[in-house]
C-alpha cells in the first residue's frame, strides 16, 4: 500500500506514427519508464483538448500527446490543426501554472529510440512536479 508515489501519465498516441513508434520501441527492446498509459487515437488532430483535461481530472499526473511530424500526417494536415489547438492549451496551462503537466511531441513510426527518450523526459519532468494538484481533497473515490 505504501509504495512510493509513481507518476501516472496518459499518452494519446496517433495510430500511424507515434503508436507505431511505441511499438518499435517495444520490439526493439528499448527500455522506457512504465509510467505511461497509452490511448491510441486515429490522429493527433482528433485529440480534443477536453480529452486532455478529462485525463487530468481523472487523476493523471501528466499527459503526453504525440503525433506524426509536421508534413507527415496520414490525413495530410491533422497534426497542423492539432498544433494550433495545443498551442492555445499550452499557453493557457502555462498561465495557470500547470504547463509541465501536459506535453506534446512528434514521433514517427521509425523513431523507437526517440519515443523512449520522450517518455523518459516527460516522466522525469512530471515526477519532479509531484502528484496532480487537482486531486486535492479527493478522498471519497480513491480509498475503498
Amino acid at each position: 500500500m505504501n509504495s512510493p508515489w509513481e507518476p501516472k501519465i496518459v499518452a494519446f498516441l496517433c495510430h500511424w506514427c507515434s503508436y507505431a513508434g511505441a511499438d518499435l520501441a517495444g520490439v526493439s527492446r528499448i527500455q522506457y519508464p512504465p509510467n505511461i498509459r497509452v490511448v491510441r487515437v486515429p490522429c493527433s488532430g482528433s485529440v480534443d483538448p477536453l480529452y486532455i483535461l478529462k485525463a487530468l481530472r481523472e487523476g493523471a499526473d501528466g499527459v503526453l500527446v504525440s503525433g506524426c511530424h509536421p508534413g507527415d500526417c496520414h490525413y495530410l494536415s491533422g497534426n497542423y490543426f492539432a498544433r494550433r489547438k495545443f498551442l492555445v492549451l499550452h499557453k493557457l496551462l502555462d498561465l495557470l501554472g500547470l504547463r509541465d503537466r501536459v506535453h506534446f511531441s512528434w514521433v514517427s513510426a521509425s523513431e523507437g529510440q526517440r519515443f523512449a527518450d520522450v517518455v523518459k523526459a516527460v516522466t522525469e519532468v512530471v515526477r519532479s512536479l509531484g502528484p496532480n494538484p487537482l486531486r486535492e481533497g479527493e478522498s471519497t473515490c480513491d480509498t475503498p
Binding site: 509536421p70 508534413g71 494536415s77 497542423y80 490543426f81 498544433r83 494550433r84 495545443f86 498551442l87 499550452h90 506535453h103 506534446f104 511531441s105 512528434w106 520522450v118 523526459a121 516527460v122
Partner: peptide, 11 residues
Amino acid sequence: YREDDPNAFIR
C-alpha cells in the same frame, strides 16, 4: 493553419 505555426513548445 500555417506550416510555420509555432512549433517550439512541441518536443
